[in-house]
Simulated scan of single mutants.
Amino acid sequence: MDGTEHLTLRREGATLVLTLDRPEARNALSLPMLIGLHDGWLEADADDTVRSVVLTGAGGAFCSGMDLKALAGEGMAGREHRERLAADPDLHWKAMLRHHRPRKPVIAAVEGACVAGGTEILQGTDIRIAGESAVFGLYEVRRGLFPIGGSTVRLPRQIPRTHALEMLLTGRPYPAREAAAIGLIGHVVPDGTALDKALETAERINACGPLAVEAVKASVYETAGMTETDGLAAELRRGWPVFDTADAREGARAFAEKRPPVYRRA
């Protein structure tokens, strides 16, 4: 778990914590940060001991969006980072969860600014928790830009269209309470406690059967664009194999024996 100069990784039990770590720039996206995110998602996918992921930011902010100066050329740190991007021109989209969906649940712990590219990354997460002073918004149109991280597609599928269009077309900030009211985030907690709440939620997930958790997440996203009939058929294809696992038998046995289950991904 190496991370980069702008992205740190650490383990909290079965949870991998990814921290956007450029507080002097309110965690604006840089090339080292994007590379660290990309590698963190892949590490979580590859490591079966990781059961959940928490994404957060350092220094009282989540992410203030893309650092256009840093990504324009001279601000890009290090030949190694530039070579990584040249080798995979899609790397930044995978890092921002536009072209990659982790198979483990991803929980966002938001404090402070979560705007522009921050709100775009947020839409690739599964569960979202924010401190009460957090601020959200897609500011791109105010700068004559397009929110090309996926927001014109994802946002109307995640919140009511009228709210999505207002957010996209006005570029105005949304305080945490309003973001929760329109369904963009799920929990508002006292400032400074979003990470604690996210880790608590992750622990609840980690206590569940990992094969079941991953199959449930996959089914939700796989069936999102299907008709109800097709979605229900796809759900059976995902769900029935879970019942035929040793973990499913262990869950039932542990319930009968009144003890915590010991899941082995089998």
Rank of each mutant, 00 (worst) to 15 (best):
M1D: 09
G3V: 00
G3N: 02
T4R: 07
L7W: 08
R10N: 10
A14R: 06
D21W: 06
R22H: 15
R26G: 05
R26T: 11
A28Q: 11
L34N: 06
G40D: 01
G40Q: 02
W41K: 02
A44V: 01
D47K: 04
R51S: 03
R51E: 04
V53T: 01
V54K: 02
T56L: 07
A58S: 15
A58Y: 03
G59F: 02
G60T: 06
A61R: 00
F62G: 01
D67K: 02
L68A: 14
L71K: 01
E74R: 13
G75P: 02
M76A: 15
G78P: 03
R79A: 14
R82S: 11
R82H: 09
R84L: 13
A86Q: 14
D88G: 10
D90M: 13
A95G: 13
K104G: 00
K104S: 01
V106G: 00
I107M: 05
A108Q: 04
A108P: 00
A109G: 05
A109C: 08
E111V: 02
E111C: 03
C114N: 06
V115A: 10
A116H: 13
A116K: 04
A116I: 05
Q123E: 15
G124Y: 05
G124F: 04
T125K: 04
T125F: 05
D126Y: 10
D126A: 08
I127V: 14
R128W: 09
R128T: 03
G131A: 08
G131V: 03
S133R: 14
A134W: 04
A134C: 09
A134D: 03
F136S: 03
L138N: 01
Y139G: 04
R143C: 10
P147F: 06
G150N: 05
T152D: 11
V153F: 15
L155K: 05
I159M: 08
I159T: 04
P160S: 03
L165E: 15
E166M: 11
T170K: 13
G171V: 02
A176Y: 06
A181N: 09
G183H: 10
G183S: 05
L184D: 01
L184I: 08
V189E: 04
G192E: 11
T193P: 12
A194E: 06
D196W: 14
A198H: 03
E200R: 13
L211E: 07
A212M: 15
V213C: 04
V216I: 15
S219F: 13
Y221P: 00
E222Q: 12
E222M: 12
A224V: 12
T227W: 11
T229D: 15
T229F: 14
D230W: 07
A233E: 12
L236S: 13
R238Q: 12
G239K: 12
G239W: 09
F243C: 14
A248F: 15
A248E: 05
R249Y: 13
R249G: 14
G251E: 06
R253K: 13
F255M: 14
K258A: 15
P261E: 06
P261Y: 05
V262W: 09
V262P: 03
V262Y: 07
R264Y: 09
